[in-house]
Design a protein around this nucleic acid. Structure first.
Lengths: 202, 202
DNA sequence: GATTTCATGTAAATGGTTACATGATTCG
DNA sequence: CGAATCATGTAACCATTTACATGAAATC
């Protein structure tokens, strides 16, 4: 259900085509919420059917056509309702932590490489999110600047602050996951001292 | 796909019925991986069909019957393969962080109550997970003790250590989420100083 | 002219949620 | 005897993933 609101959030800034939105999901918003094109196009149609968006066929080249969507009043209202409404939290479901609970079944090397991969996964995300924070601070975020243009300047600090706040949360989470993976690697060295391949070779 | 391995993990300790497993998912394992009964029963049937489990009809009372499952060699092998195999990480998809990025659209009070709810949600989980750690440390965890009984005593410290490690990761995450929500509440007070309802009431 | 990017989808499968349905057994 | 718990499912729906499919426009 969040896909709908992620799309509304982007279209609140300016009208876009499905493909424009898809690219956003591959970069900026995609770092918080991902969706593939095969989910975006049908959802846009449904949102139009539900009156949240209006689509307009636009010529593209000589024979090409594309469909540009803009948010309706009902769409803006639905978005405002969403931001004001309490989420319900799904029950816990985390594959890596589930697996970690049974790591005594694993090869020490396989366990090591998975914890390393865990740290690397979140390391990569950490970099992306930190970069986003730098873009916000430096005023070089394209999307944020366009979003700011839709707000009176008195609200600009808020808009930027909440965006920064979001990425701060994600970086904190990434750091916590990395620290956890590293504690896991240390634990493996402790529990299987005979072969500490990769960690303290020689 | 992880449901299958969560079930194998539990059945590795001892044979159980669907209902036994369901109860585990409501308490112990449920704090790491949740599944409703309507997902458990059909999955057990599929696992039996795939040769990972064997089910046996057991009498229960005079007319009642129940189906007790135990893991086959193929099942143990599949589980071992799973713990040794690298997960692939899903793309980012986090409703609360998505919403946080657009909190300038929210009522300050609605924003506050949602961040408060976020902190409370993870606060409740934090307590559960910390309790699990205490059970592990105190040797009072029923499930862990039965699991330990299936391992030679040389391996006991490992089994307990990995279980503890899992919950440590989850508590760290919960703490990070709580800290984030609190930073958010402070931010709201900063951005909307006029009404700081609830936070610093006289 | 070939490759990349722009553009828009459909189809099948997977994994999960919510609601419904039923009946036996045990416990107080 | 009534309530809680034990026991096992089905059905409909929703969100998401992966794979397939097509073609125009822009760029090199």
């Amino acid at each position: 259900m969040s896909l709908r609101y992620a799309l509304l959030a982007l279209l609140n800034v300016e009208p876009m085509t499905g493909y424009d939105l898809y690219k956003q999901f591959e970069s900026s918003v995609g770092y918080v919420w991902h969706a593939p094109d095969s989910q975006i196009y049908p959802e846009l149609r449904r949102m139009e059917r539900d009156g949240l968006l209006e689509g307009e066929e636009v010529a593209w080249g000589t024979k090409g056509r594309k469909r540009q969507y803009h948010v309706t009043d009902a769409g803006r209202e639905a978005f405002r309702t969403w931001v004001n409404t309490q989420l319900d939290y799904p029950r816990e479901r985390d594959p890596m932590h589930l697996k970690a609970a049974y790591l005594e079944w694993a090869d020490p090397d396989a366990a090591r490489s998975q914890l390393l991969a865990h740290a690397e996964h979140y390391g990569a995300r950490l970099l992306q999110w930190q970069q986003k924070i730098q873009e916000i601070d430096g005023g070089t975020s394209d999307m944020l600047n366009r979003r700011l243009a839709t707000f009176p300047s008195a609200d600009h600090s808020r808009v930027a602050a909440f965006k920064r706040f979001t990425y701060e949360g994600l970086t904190a989470r990434a750091e916590s996951e990395i620290a956890w993976a590293q504690r896991g690697l240390a634990l493996l060295d402790e529990l299987y001292p005979e072969d500490s391949s990769g960690t303290a070779a020689t």
